[in-house]
Amino acid sequence: MNISFNLNGSATNLEVAPGESLLQALRASRVFSVKLGCETGDCGSCTVLLDGQPVNSCMVVAARVNGSHVTTMEGLLGDDLMIRLQTELVEHGAVQCGYCIPGLLISLYALVKQGPSCGGEIDEEVIRHALTGNLCRCTGYVKPVEAARAVVAAMEVPK
């Protein structure tokens, strides 16, 4: 079946099988920032934005995104907020093998863009809650959180 959607700002048509996941469809289209880790919705290395919300692309049927906006790391390169997040992750030594990083960045990007649902501050608890779906086997769960706090501290938090 054919689906058309907006991928990273460009109108895109793809031929997909009815049971194919968005992860499989994106990688088949050479969108390689989207990583296959577990395919069970646990690791977050396949995280993308679907209409602005972070989702595990392995847990979304490709057919469903017909008419939607999908954003991956490729579409956020050069974005101001993304550059700040990337810089702080590197500064804080939060990047080792890099496998989890695109998914982690997408989750952090969505958090900082949207702010917490209660409208309060993006504090450590909120950051940790937002990263519950992103596993990192290399650096663990201190450095990415510190990096996110640095980004938040350096900017006006959207209310």
């Binding site: 977050g44 995280t47 919300q53 972070p54 595990n56 847990m59 209660c118 809650h129 779906g133």
Partner: peptide, 24 residues
């Protein structure tokens, strides 16, 4: 939902799965 019965339903939902899972 956040206001209903002290937000209990929102709280239970926030403990289901992880952030990207809850989006869908």
């Amino acid at each position: 939902v956040r206001e209903f019965a002290g937000g209990a339903i929102s709280k239970s939902a926030s403990q289901c799965g992880n952030r990207p899972v809850r989006s869908t």
